[in-house]
Design a protein around this nucleic acid. Sequence first.
DNA 1: TGACAAGCGAGAGCACTGCTCTCTATTCTG
DNA 2: CAGAATAGAGAGCAGTGCTCTCGCTTGTCA
Lengths: 219, 219
Amino acid sequence: MRAVLDSARRHLATSGADSLSVRAVARDVGIVSSAIYRYVPSRDALLTLLVIEAYDDLGGAAERAERAVTRDDGAGRFLAVCGAVRTWALEHPHEYALIFGTPVPGYAAPQETIGPASRIPSLLLGILRGSPRSQSERRLDRGGTAAKAVEPLRDGLGSGLAPDELARGLNAWTGLLGAVSMETFGHFTGVVAQSPRVRKAFFAEQMIALAGGLDLFDL
Amino acid sequence: MRAVLDSARRHLATSGADSLSVRAVARDVGIVSSAIYRYVPSRDALLTLLVIEAYDDLGGAAERAERAVTRDDGAGRFLAVCGAVRTWALEHPHEYALIFGTPVPGYAAPQETIGPASRIPSLLLGILRGSPRSQSERRLDRGGTAAKAVEPLRDGLGSGLAPDELARGLNAWTGLLGAVSMETFGHFTGVVAQSPRVRKAFFAEQMIALAGGLDLFDL
DNA sequence: TGACAAGCGAGAGCACTGCTCTCTATTCTG
DNA sequence: CAGAATAGAGAGCAGTGCTCTCGCTTGTCA
């Protein structure tokens, strides 16, 4: 089982999910393709395992980066998470694509992925919860729309936060993923200079503008 | 050729790019699979044609929506574009995924796609160019990073705009795509209420917050 | 110790994929 | 009317996910 997972992870990392074939994994492990099905019920199930691993790996990286920042520096904690997500995505583009890219048609993320998947959202909301700036006068909610929209979060991840804060947190999350996805998926070619240093600095500016625009923290 | 493209478009729209097979298209058209190669050199080339069609379809929808708004209402024009992109994405999820989702490994977007691909960015920058608010005091550029970053746009799409404006426009574009991608790719399940009305209103609020946060217009 | 079951792998096979090759029938053109 | 261009058919190759049956090895229990 270990060998199967290791090989699958390697194939995913180097060639992407499309070219992860159970036959290739079998060849790698040194057994015949049908024997793989002793360990994993299907290719989709194998991908699900990798999805969970990816979420956990990314979540762990983000949590480590966030922990390294002084507790009362909300903006710094937020930017640390952003930077960790971006770095991880650029280092693991295929894993990133697997979890945040095109959903596989006919494949619904099973129950056991939602836990690992919510590590970063939970981290972000935790930062927001600890931020003294969480009562912003630049309210986003107009006429209770946001309250209705983020209702599913009320008793779960978002407990203890006002609807307006939740909405702004969600905006931060989508803004972060948007920036990282564009760069990771190659939509910056011909638009943003390729130099890694410039791109990193530009991303930092983007995230500062994002946090500032949403009035997430005292900056 | 028409029949081939029609069938391919239909397959893409209903089952996604993964399950678009030249054999299925051939069956659809009523010829044998090898005959397809009289019209299209490879499956990738067929996908490229669909990519161009998708960019053009989306770009056309956005342009139409933008044209319907009074010229001097910059924010209204921006929000019209945002809404059109979101609507098109939800109506054509597979086409949207094809152009903004996971890049196909080993497939580099050929030259002939960059024209159609830049219709919306060009539209957005046009709105910014016409906005009297384009000299914002909430500058994003710190130490010339943004100027270096958006250098590739200087003489092309972004001519006539200051680096700081270009950077803010790019932020708007990534924010828009981030929000649309999250919703289209199903990352809102369990997070944002499913009601289409609520989601639409919430998206509008997100885009208003985005434009406001970036200080794109006088609101 | 012997019987039995569970676990694990091999191998064949099915239906599918992209793509290439050769061969043939039609149609267009000089 | 001859020759060329065009469009399709069909076989075939190497690959895919997955199922089925068969056999070997190992563990368990009386």
